[in-house]
Design a protein around this nucleic acid. Structure first.
Lengths: 349, 349
DNA sequence: CTGTTAGCGCGTTCAC
DNA sequence: GTGAACGCGCTAACAG
């Protein structure tokens, strides 16, 4: 709704520098075969006029936008915000811009956003998880737009994956808790609908428990939004239900913080009466009482590595298409042995 | 580095629909004076071909990009991530894209990012705070790019401001603490260099204390990064210094959380021995022990209202140029009277 | 209501 | 090493 065209354009620079537009263009694009003197004149002229190239025109002419899109569930969860932060930081060093979109965990909205991004001419797209509408991926593939999944290690034939194995993550938590002697377990998963990461962690957790010989009767699973409130409510359900667990695996540190809050309010001791295990290793993991045992998600690294992938040439990319980052179990004070069995550090993956 | 041009373009749609490119363009732009039948044919043809308009060409021709830029210090702080989240959510409803940039609290980097945004053709820019390089604002003004400051209520002649009064915020905290009878005060400000919000809060805090008759000797000010660690270290400095305060105002809840952690470790009771006052009212304010008394920053509202401003017409904007949102004092358990004076709810602005 | 004409600002051939 | 000419895909004017 704005933008007068009082702007100086490339021709104006050319005129002032006493050369042709083509030469100015060459200087702008760092074409080495331009005489140093001429180059200097051009640079000076551009500066003097406060010339800023018109990105739309460049993009139209060169079919290069130096723009990537990122579609994440929300920026209100630190785990995604941090990823985008490092993604943008790295891309920005190479003058690549990031258009950010939030899907609110809805793959239909994600598809709409993806369409808009295609229209904007993004050269690649960063997605979260590996569950998307087939149309979304088909559209990107048809236009030859590279895409990367994050927070998962499951790539497609065409798209890369930079993340970790959520199934392993769930199993890691299960094994740690079982090793501590717990036999009555609970899980407060995040919302698993349309969230393959959350459901994979749940499946990994349950799968490992089964492998360890635990019966379904000994396990209760609930779901909660990624909010303190949700964690608190879910914990209440678990602890006042038929089979109160002695250890609970939460789909996020936020949920775990809520769970611990509930215990406090009810006089349930953590970890003496119940162990609480988080996920993400957010800053808040050090703020709960006791501090949270959790699994660290490499959010920052995922952003940086995804950026690296997108900056790479198609050839280089082939070796970067699937990157499984390792998960770190961070043992703090919210978990303890059920019976006098020695807690032991466990390291997977 | 990608993007083959196998893409179908507007002419192709026109051909298939049996009409001129201009008509297709009209349909695309919801120009009402197109016959319904023709419109239908065009829509069908476009769908059949999987046509996606070329944003660069549209932008070049129409000098409209439907794109806004946001330059914030970092996405790693929830207060900014939340603002961007709601900004994007609202703009997205109108098919306006957001290019996100982080300046790491550096106004020189901010300037560089702004240049890139101008080159990308953004129609407006969202900035944080009111301190920027003059070149940055001059550039935007010269190009007729609208800009909005957030987290501040200080507008310029040309740019709008949507936020709150940081001086008042500081004063609000000061008054609350003084009303509780505290006379020996500390402040852990955020980093104030290049951060007008942090320094305004500090100035507001100190100003109000002076107004209340407190001498400088009774006040100690330190600075800390927005990290738990930083809060802890600064609190140590304060409490082991010459004049240990009985109440401390922190520039952020994160810092306050660190301060409380230090107290825990040292056996200093909060709020009996020292009151701790936060800022932001992040989710973590309910996770500290005791829970934090703090001032709520309307991050979400700022994003939404900034979006509303940018979506408005120039005419409408005139009434929206300066928007001071009110601040809410959230009293929890981390503050208490120094002496037996009754605590009282205080509400400014 | 619809088609025709003419560029938007730039980068890329080609010649020279 | 440099310039001239063309056109990227689309929409704004203008006719009709």
């Amino acid at each position: 709704m704005d933008n007068d065209r009082t702007d100086t354009k490339l021709v104006d620079v050319a005129r002032l520098a006493g050369c042709s537009p083509a030469t100015v263009s060459r200087v702008l694009n760092n074409n080495p075969k331009v005489d140093v003197k001429v180059r200097d004149r051009v640079v000076k002229a551009a500066a003097q006029l406060g010339y800023v190239p018109n990105g739309s025109a460049r993009a139209l002419r060169s079919t290069k936008t130096r723009t990537v899109g990122a579609i994440i569930p929300t920026l209100d969860h630190a785990i995604y915000a941090t990823m985008v932060n490092s993604l943008q930081a790295r891309l920005s060093e190479k003058d690549v811009s990031v258009i950010i979109n939030t899907s609110m965990y809805d793959i239909d909205i994600e598809f709409e956003q993806a369409k808009l991004l295609v229209e904007r001419g993004v050269e690649s797209v960063v997605l979260v998880g590996s569950v998307h509408r087939p149309e979304t991926l088909a559209m990107l593939e048809q236009r030859n737009i590279a895409y990367v999944f994050t927070y998962t290690s499951l790539a497609t034939d065409i798209g890369a994956a930079i993340g970790f194995d959520n199934v392993k993550a769930g199993a890691m938590a299960a094994r740690y808790l079982v090793d501590l002697g717990h036999t009555q377990l609970g899980m407060i998963a995040g919302i698993t609908e349309n969230n393959d990461r959350a459901s994979a962690r749940r499946d990994g957790f349950l799968g490992e428990l089964k492998r360890q010989g635990l019966a379904n009767d000994n396990i209760t699973v609930t779901e909660s939004a990624y909010k303190i409130e949700g964690g608190r409510d879910s914990m209440r359900k678990l602890m006042t239900g038929p089979n109160p667990p002695s250890a609970v695996f939460c789909g996020s540190d936020i949920i775990a913080a809520g769970a611990i809050k509930y215990c406090h309010a009810e006089g349930i001791r953590v970890p003496e009466d119940v162990s609480v295990f988080g996920f993400d290793n957010l800053e808040i993991a050090e703020l709960t009482h006791p501090e949270l045992t959790t699994i660290e998600v490499p959010a920052r690294d995922m952003g940086t590595i995804a950026a690296e992938y997108l900056l790479a040439t198609p050839l280089q990319r082939q070796h970067m298409r699937q990157r499984e980052l390792s998960l770190k179990l961070v043992v703090r004070a919210s978990t303890a042995p059920r019976k006098p069995i020695e807690a032991q550090r466990c390291s997977f993956s």
